[in-house]
């Protein structure tokens, strides 16, 4: 991952805007922002992030690569699409935020221990493995993210809900061992591989 970052720095030099335009999902929209600030004002999480979308766009144009990619701001996006609906320039802001987060993750620059990022990794690995989400493993993965004791504590707190699920046959404890999978696991893996190839080509990512 680090190599990819070095490669990107070398390829784009100081032109971060161009890098974003080429490599980030919907990144070519960034230049069309007119800095009205409606997105920042519309964001329900607005006061809680370091940099609202308007600022992120400005930072990209000002070439602040490190600051943008290592920021946890775009990880805070809840995909409510308020900004997209209101943007007078019709920028797909939500998509750009996710695109930036993904790109930062790929380069290994995204902040460590960011809860959204951790959950996303867990979810992705969980579901792509068998083609089905194993809810029990995913939940326990989230519980034990911060260590054994913290995990036990969280599981204990949730025990009543867990038993309830068990009684209504909503939770199968045997899933923990093998778990069910989709019929054509190989097919799923091939599809994902193909999709990644297309994405890499579209965003000029090194193979």
């Amino acid at each position: 991952m680090g190599d990819m970052n070095i490669q990107a720095i070398e390829q784009y030099r100081s032109d971060f805007l161009k890098e974003v335009e080429e490599r980030v999902e919907e990144g070519h929209w960034v230049k069309m922002c007119m800095q009205c600030g409606v997105c920042s004002g519309s964001c329900p999480f607005g006061p809680h992030w370091a940099h609202p979308p308007q600022e992120i766009f400005m930072m990209i144009r000002a070439g602040k690569r490190e600051e943008v990619l290592s920021s946890d701001s775009m990880w805070m996006c809840t995909s409510c699409y308020n900004c997209v609906v209101r943007c007078p320039r019709q920028l797909p802001i939500t998509q750009i935020m996710h695109g930036l987060a993904t790109y930062a993750h790929r380069l290994g620059l995204a902040p460590r221990n960011q809860p959204t990022r951790d959950f996303s990794i867990l979810f992705w690995e969980n579901c792509t493995k068998t083609g089905r989400v194993n809810e029990l493993k995913l939940t326990l993965g989230v519980y034990f993210r911060e260590g054994l004791m913290a995990g036990i504590k969280k599981a204990w707190n949730m025990r009543n809900i867990g038993f309830g699920l068990l009684l209504t046959k909503r939770l199968n404890p045997f899933e923990l061992f093998k778990g069910h999978a989709c019929k054509d696991q190989k097919g799923i893996h091939a599809m994902l591989k193909k999709a990644q190839e297309i994405e890499a080509r579209r965003h000029k990512l090194p193979a």
């Binding site: 230049k31 069309m32 007119m34 800095q35 144009r61 000002a62």
Partner: peptide
Amino acid sequence: FYRSGQSKGVTFTK
């Protein structure tokens, strides 16, 4: 015209 400038890559900095 402003939008055209932006799409041509003119950078606007407040």
